[in-house]
Amino acid sequence: MNTFQLDGEEIPFEPGQTVIQAALAAGHYIPHLCYHPEFVPHGSCRLCTVRADGRPTAACTLPAQPGLKVESETEELNDLRRTLVQMLFAEGNHFCPSCEKSGNCVLQALGYDLGVLTAGFRHFFLDRPVDASHPDILLDFNRCVLCKLCVRASEEVDGKGVFSLAGRGIQRRLIVSAESGRLADTDVAVTDKAVEVCPVGVILRKRVGFRVPIGRRRYDLRPIRAQALEDAPRRPEHRHE
């Protein structure tokens, strides 16, 4: 089997696998946010930036190649990732104490993993009104990190196209497929993959937010570094450990 090197260790891979897929399958975590094992890689959050033969690139879109030398756990790259997380916290209005996604949130878990203590930068405080129109689903745009997972899920899995991204630059934003601009006027359903897949607290099912108490949630129980390996499709020899 072909292998590439990740931080000095040989990682086996199958043809067609990306560096992040092979790394996770072999039990090596590379921080990531917009990458999701069930979807075609997007490459927009840049958290998974690695150096491949010295060249910085996103691990989620980088096809694994034999003999490639990949660096990931370096001070330079973790510094970069910390800054990226800080930038996301400064861009959106992320107020964890009032967010029912707290403990299940990938952005928050990444902040913990990377040791982010402050956004550092000046906050944008953009005005992002909440859409509570739908009887079963709440949309809080304040927390959107523009990972496009809901857009991808709605198009590819639900076959609906409920969500899309619009605008450019810092004005880039999530929109829904309705002339009124309200979620209630779309054909979204509470069972849609798009609703489930949101890694942060934008798309929320109503009335179930606190069923699992704070402190007993996904990343409370297991840091994201371990949880991500749990979630990724594993190589057979790792599967039956």
Binding site: F95, T118, F125
Partner: peptide, 11 residues
């Protein structure tokens, strides 16, 4: 650190 609860009036 973030403005926090009082900053929820910022919009």
């Amino acid at each position: 650190v973030t403005g926090g609860l009082p900053a929820q009036r910022n919009h």
